[in-house]
């Protein structure tokens, strides 16, 4: 079992790499810090965060999304046609983000995340995966005032994400991950979503992953076995029915098991994690399972985020050593 993370990590660490990002962003907003200086701060923290993951013993890393306020605005800000608007709630969390509105035909002028991906990759010899919002989540978190047509908007976003995925692949990303938390809420149009995922992953030769987190699985594990991705991520902390759902499905994909609750500070015991691995092992061979926290770790304070990483590694090492 390989250990990995879902995406983001705390940007501040009072007991670690410090809280410099807060004052740096304020100073940049007041134009007392240049873009290049702020970028230097971000890269310094990215380096520290990658080192945290390495120290904890995580196998496959991300860059910690230190530059990201949320999953969609880093892309929406760089795609022409979007305008960033007022605060909205981030799914079912007491956390907010600024909702982008599409007012004109969206145009991607070039690679968006490639520079920051390359900078992160240069910090470590471990594999670093690239994370993108899934097309459905992108569409649900933004507002379309241009197409006024859900399926056309979704297909167009999937095409733009596909261009970005290919650019990240060319930059050396061994895994391209699409996050689809929006699938956990309401009544998602699953056929249309499968089509959008096919567009987003078209021609990508790197390993592809689709991560679900928050809300409920809504019986989607079965239809998603047909999605053209290699790895399917499941958050078993948010949906009490998730473990049962994993057991019922005939797995054609690799499973990324979101087994530590990344939204609560309570630390899971090794024993309860082993019990969960046992259940999963009955369903699919463990060389097709990787493990990670239930979602990005940024909902947690720094100390607890690190504890969760260490516990994940400890649970896997002791399980395999049995």
């Amino acid at each position: 079992m390989i250990t990995t993370v879902v995406g983001n990590f705390p940007k501040v660490a009072e007991a670690g790499f410090g809280t410099k990002v807060i004052s740096s962003i304020s100073r940049w907003q007041r134009k007392e810090l240049s873009d290049a200086e702020l970028e230097g701060v971000f890269q310094g923290i990215t380096k520290a965060v990658i080192a945290e993951h390495e120290r904890a013993g995580i196998d496959v890393l991300t860059d910690g999304q230190i530059r990201w306020e949320d999953l969609v605005t880093p892309l929406a800000k760089k795609i022409e046609g979007f305008e960033i608007n007022g605060l909205e709630r981030w799914f079912d969390n007491n956390v907010y983000y600024r909702r982008p509105i599409l007012r004109k035909a969206p145009v991607r002028r070039g690679p968006i995340l490639v520079d920051e991906y390359r900078a992160a990759k240069a910090c470590t010899s471990k594999p670093v995966k690239a994370v993108l919002p899934g097309p459905y989540t992108f569409v649900k978190l933004t507002e379309d005032r241009y197409y006024k047509n859900d399926s056309r908007f979704l297909r167009k976003i999937a095409e733009l994400l596909n261009e970005e995925a290919k650019a990240l692949e060319a930059a050396g990303a061994p895994i391209i991950q699409f996050d689809e938390p929006a699938l956990g809420f309401g009544k998602p149009p699953i056929k249309l979503i499968l089509e959008a995922i096919a567009i987003a992953t078209r021609g990508v030769k790197a390993t592809t992953a689709l991560y679900l987190y928050f809300g409920h699985l809504n019986g989607f594990l079965e239809p998603l076995q047909k999605a053209p991705v290699d790895i399917l991520g499941v958050d078993v902390a948010s949906d009490p029915q998730a473990v049962g759902a994993i057991r019922k499905v005939k797995w054609t994909k690799q499973l990324a098991l979101g087994c530590l609750d990344a939204r609560n500070t309570k630390l899971e015991s090794v024993t309860e994690l082993h019990a969960l691995f046992d259940v999963v092992a009955k369903r699919l061979p463990l060389d097709r399972v990787c493990v990670n926290p239930s979602c990005g770790l940024e909902f947690l304070p720094y100390e607890q985020a690190v504890q969760k990483l260490r516990r994940l590694v400890e649970a896997v090492q002791t399980y395999q050593g049995r």
Partner: peptide
Amino acid sequence: SSLVRSYGNRYYRK
């Protein structure tokens, strides 16, 4: 807790 982010560049102790 120590600091967690609420939105944008805003942090609080939860």
